[in-house]
């Protein structure tokens, strides 16, 4: 999820406020697919990806393309508006109740000494890890990935090399949202539950992880997310579970004050 954030930020050059809702829609699509297909997880992940991909295209058409010649803050505010619209529609569409995600491993776990590890956790981790590797390959080896990197570094130069910048932005954003959809489904599996309003806090956490790792850096986002998770769980273990979110946002503030460029961030990256 943080990785999706990072791509959007890098390629579109924009902080988006709609990512949380993209995740929610992906999660619910995955949830219904899971019910309809009687627990076909692969299909659910794929459906979550597809739904969010499409949503990504919509976001692009509504929030980014019309305001390209305007300041970045215009598009930013447009994403806030769209996010509110989508959040409210989600409550109408999916109901305001929390939905319980069936666990494909029937809550089985294996024990490693004193530590219990659920199969679901292993599965989620494996999928995320696999996606990271895949993404890394796409970004560094394919023309699409090169195009994304070119656009993120220098839009003007990319256009002068014959690259369709708008198309790259569209596809990059769609890809990022698609990944958000997958992460939504995975989150649902991890917590066994999804809720139409879970997007906001998720998005803030993803944002924190992204800032922590360094804005626009994909590796950084992965590391940031990982570290954030560790810190949060330490807080839960040492204080109480109520402190989980506090720790996340304390980290955000601390990073912004101490090292705004994050762990892997480049100094003075210009996002224009």
């Amino acid at each position: 999820m943080a990785i999706g954030y990072s791509i959007i930020l890098g390629v579109v050059g924009l902080v988006t406020f709609v990512h949380g809702e993209v995740i929610v829609y992906g999660a619910f699509t995955g949830f219904y697919t899971l019910l309809l297909s009687r627990g076909n997880v692969a299909l659910a992940l794929l459906a979550g990806f597809a739904a969010s991909w499409i949503l990504g295209v919509v976001v692009n058409k509504i929030c980014y393309q019309p305001f390209q010649q305007r300041g970045r803050e215009v598009a930013l505010i447009a994403t806030i508006g769209l996010s509110i619209t989508l959040r409210s529609s989600a409550q109408v569409l999916f109901g305001t109740q929390q939905k319980f995600m069936p666990d494909m491993f029937q809550n089985r776990f294996f024990a490693l000494g004193d530590i219990r590890i659920a199969y679901t956790q292993v599965f989620v981790f494996a999928v995320v890890f696999g996606l990271c590797l895949l993404l890394q390959r796409i970004i560094t080896k394919t023309y699409f990935g090169m195009a994304l990197r070119a656009v993120s570094m220098n839009k003007k130069a990319a256009a002068l090399l014959g690259l369709d910048v708008n198309r790259a932005i569209l596809l990059g954003n769609a890809l990022a949202c698609g990944l958000g959809g997958i992460s939504g489904v995975l989150l649902g599996m991890y917590y066994n539950a999804i809720h139409p309003l879970m997007g906001a806090s998720m998005a803030m956490k993803a944002f924190t992880a992204t800032v922590f790792g360094g804005l626009g850096s994909i590796t950084g986002a992965a590391i940031g997310g990982f570290l954030l998770g560790i810190f949060e769980n330490f807080a839960v273990a040492m204080l109480s579970s109520g402190y989980r979110d506090i720790v996340a946002f304390l980290i955000l503030i601390a990073v912004l004050i101490a090292k705004p460029s994050g762990i892997m961030g480049r100094r003075g990256v210009e996002l224009s």
Binding site: R149, A150, M153, N154, K156, A157, L160, R266
Partner: peptide, 10 residues
């Protein structure tokens, strides 16, 4: 283009 506009991180 003016000012070269190469990709600094490639």
């Amino acid at each position: 283009p003016e000012g070269r506009q190469i990709f600094p991180y490639l």
